[in-house]
Amino acid sequence: MDHISLNHEASAGDTHKQAVSTLPPEVVQCLENARFLHLATCVDNQPHVSLMNYTYLPSSTYSAAPVIIMTTNPASKKTNNLLVNPNVSLLVHDWVSHRPPTHSRRPSGGSPGPEHRSSLASLLINLNTSAVSSISATINGTAELVAQGSEEEKFYRDQHLENNTFDSEGPVFNPNPQQQPEDGGRECFVAGEEVRVILVHIKDVRTSDWKGGVRDWVIEPASAAATSTVSQVNGTR
């Protein structure tokens, strides 16, 4: 196989930036295929990252722009953070990866070798050692807690419940399989009355492909995107 060199283009600034009113198809595919995303919040220069279930909606009766729905315990660190600083960053990808075997353990112990891997790690390696998609997407936006008890909250919660049917998937992440919740955890993580609904309004997106190439998009209203010159790339959109 011919060697394919990686791209080393600068990525500190905007790269091939385009203004759009909807998310690019490759980002939508990523969001539709992935099971989880990473939510990053930050207060007082202390970042915090959480692994989250989510639901992506391209539009709804409450928002013409694309949004991402999540739910959280009202006493969680992420909730406290976004109340102070609503700016968030999300990382999503729809590929499965694993650490390749090494000849020996690192002097400090390091990551476990094949003989020390858990059964779950071995299962993931055997199931899929290649990428489903060739990109990861970093999504920046602002988060809000939807008004508790409102029709809007009920709408987004119902959408999130419908999209996350944990009870049909088995106790993949249950630390105690002998005490699996009958509802698969939805009562704790989504449906509980005390659980708050987080709505993320998307500002911009960056994708990174497996060769190191990056692309940027900024989400604008349809009228603004149609007249913006930012989206011009080689004379076309």
Rank of each mutant, 00 (worst) to 15 (best):
P175Q: 06
M70N: 00
S208E: 11
Q29H: 14
V200K: 10
N128C: 15
A121V: 06
T71A: 00
A137C: 15
P177N: 03
L91R: 00
A131S: 10
S104V: 06
T41Q: 11
F189G: 03
G109D: 09
S130D: 07
T142N: 13
T61L: 05
G184H: 10
N53I: 04
T227R: 13
E144A: 15
D204Q: 08
A19G: 12
S133G: 15
Y156F: 02
N128G: 06
G192L: 02
S130T: 12
S97A: 12
D183R: 10
E144L: 11
Q18K: 15
Q180V: 00
I198T: 03
S150D: 04
S130L: 09
S89H: 03
V132D: 11
N87H: 08
R237E: 09
V197S: 02
R196I: 01
N140P: 08
V43K: 07
S104W: 10
R196V: 15
L91K: 02
L124T: 04
H116F: 08
Q179N: 12
K154I: 06
T138N: 03
E26D: 14
R186P: 09
H160P: 00
V230D: 15
P177Q: 02
L83E: 13
V88S: 13
L90A: 05
Q179L: 07
P107W: 08
I4S: 13
Q159Y: 02
K17L: 13
W95R: 09
I202T: 05
A191C: 03
Y156M: 03
L161N: 10
P74S: 09
D158S: 08
K17N: 10
S5F: 13
D216K: 09
S21W: 14
S231D: 12
S76Q: 05
K154E: 14
V43Q: 10
E220T: 04
V205I: 15
V172A: 06
A10T: 06
N163R: 06
S208G: 12
S108V: 05
V20Q: 08
N234S: 14
S108Y: 07
R35E: 03
S223P: 04
L23Y: 07
L31G: 07
L91T: 01
N174K: 04
D183L: 12
T72F: 00
N80S: 12
T79Q: 03
V96I: 12
G235F: 10
A40T: 02
G141H: 07
